[in-house]
């Protein structure tokens, strides 16, 4: 069962990554960056739905809810800052991918802070498995930003 679960998780996240790639293909870097940013917003939204269910089912304590919600809030704030940067790059007339990739790198580095990720821990194993999946989904979406920009049409 453990091996089956691991294989299933790998399959699911590979699928999500492919979906992310598909959403970024054949667009200019500006559109690809905005589509990838929307993907992050949507994954955070999915995470909040799961977190609300865990809280309702009393599978997670209020301090754990606050810590995890804080992480999701931090990703949301950084995502908004990323879009502001992307708009500024577009407004400057930059057509290549490099500036967009650099902005994405700043976002990903800040959102993947190991200290914050280490704090996202819950005591209930069932709840922890769901929280881990949400975090993996967000990390996949974050990785997908740079992949989407790289896959976009347009200059380097």
């Amino acid at each position: 069962m453990k091996l089956l679960t691991r294989r299933f998780s790998v399959l699911v996240f590979a699928t999500m990554l492919l979906l992310g790639l598909a959403s970024g293909c054949a667009k200019d870097p500006y559109t690809a960056a905005m589509a990838a940013s929307l993907d992050v917003s949507n994954v955070v939204s999915d995470g909040l739905v799961v977190l609300t269910e865990l809280k309702k089912d009393v599978l997670i304590t209020q301090p754990e809810v606050a810590t995890f919600a804080g992480y999701l809030g931090s990703v949301t704030t950084l995502n908004g800052t990323f879009r502001t940067s992307v708009k500024a790059i577009h407004a400057s007339g930059t057509s290549g991918k490099a500036a967009y990739i650099a902005a994405a790198q700043v976002f990903v580095t800040a959102a993947d802070d190991p200290k914050v990720l280490a704090a996202v821990h819950v005591s209930n194993p069932a709840a922890q498995a769901k929280v881990d999946n949400i975090v993996k989904g967000i990390q996949t979406a974050l990785t997908g930003i740079q992949t989407a920009i790289n896959s976009a049409s347009g200059g380097a």
Binding site: M34, A35, S37, L38, S41, N42, V44, N79, R83, K87
Partner: peptide
């Protein structure tokens, strides 16, 4: 449009 949707979702 994508940016506006992301703003709304955020």
């Amino acid at each position: 449009q994508l940016s506006a949707m992301a703003d709304t979702q955020d």
